[in-house]
Amino acid sequence: MLTTTILIVSGMICVALIMNLARLLTGPDLPDRILALDTLYINSIGLILLFGLHKGSILYFEGALLIAMLGFVSTAALCKYLLRGDIIE
């Protein structure tokens, strides 16, 4: 039962990833593209966590945590660049 649920949810997250990629490529302006990139890495974290549940390995959870930290820092840097035009003051 858990395997079927993981497969169904993985398919839903893959559809969400495709829709995020479409928004990233065709976004009307830069804030929409940054938001799509942020949502893209959050969905990829979910997909990695589901794969870790499926395989039964805790190594994937550490990878997901690393991606979450890097994604937060990159989103903050992109937003700072968008607001001020400069990352390092």
Results as ranks from 00 to 15, higher is better:
Met69Gln: 04
Asp29Phe: 09
Ala68Lys: 05
Ile34Glu: 04
Asp29Val: 09
Leu37Ile: 15
Gly46Phe: 15
Arg33Pro: 10
Asp32Leu: 13
Ala76Asn: 11
Gly27Arg: 03
Leu21Thr: 14
Ser10Asp: 03
Leu25Ala: 13
Ile6Val: 05
Leu78Asn: 13
Pro31Tyr: 06
Ala36Glu: 01
Gly46Pro: 10
Val9Pro: 00
Gly27His: 05
Leu24Cys: 09
Ile8Tyr: 14
Arg33Val: 12
Ala68Tyr: 01
Ser74Leu: 11
Leu70Ala: 15
Ile42Leu: 01
Leu35Tyr: 12
Tyr41Arg: 05
Asp29Met: 06
Ser74Phe: 08
Leu59Tyr: 05
Ala64Pro: 06
Asp38Cys: 09
Leu21Trp: 13
Met69Gly: 07
Asp32Tyr: 13
Ala64Ile: 12
Leu49Ser: 10
Gly11Met: 07
Gly71Met: 03
Pro31Asp: 06
Ile18Lys: 11
Arg23Cys: 08
Ser57Phe: 07
Ser10Tyr: 11
Thr39Ala: 08
Ile8Ala: 01
Pro31Ile: 11
Gly11Ala: 02
Gly11Ser: 03
Ser74Arg: 10
Met12His: 10
Ser57Gln: 12
Leu35Thr: 12
Ile45Arg: 15
Leu59Phe: 09
Ala64Ser: 11
Leu40Thr: 12
Met69Asn: 05
Ile45Ala: 14
Gly46Ser: 12
Ala22Asp: 00
Met12Tyr: 12
Ile48Arg: 00
Ile48His: 00
Gly11Phe: 15
Gly52Phe: 05
Ser57Glu: 08
Lys55Asp: 01
Leu17Arg: 09
Thr5Trp: 15
Leu40Arg: 05
Leu30Phe: 15
Ile18Ser: 08
Met12Ser: 09
Leu35Asp: 12
Leu50Tyr: 11
Gly71Thr: 05
Ile13Thr: 00
Val73Thr: 04
Met19Trp: 11
Phe51Pro: 02
Phe72Val: 14
Gly56Ser: 04
Thr26Ser: 01
Ile13Met: 00
Gly27Trp: 05
Leu65Arg: 07
Leu53Gly: 00
Ser10Gln: 10
Met12Thr: 09
Leu49Gly: 02
Leu59Met: 06
Gly11Pro: 04
Ser57Arg: 05
Ser10Lys: 08
Met19Asp: 02
Thr26Trp: 04
Gly11Tyr: 14
Gly56Asn: 02
Val73Met: 01
Ile18Gly: 03
Arg33Lys: 11
Gly52Gln: 03
Asn20Asp: 06
Thr26Leu: 04
Leu21Glu: 08
Leu70Gln: 14
Leu17Ser: 06
Leu50His: 07
Ile18Tyr: 13
Leu53Thr: 00
Ile48Ala: 00
Ile6Gln: 02
Lys55Ile: 07
Glu62Pro: 09
Ile13Gln: 00
Leu17Tyr: 09
Ile58Asp: 01
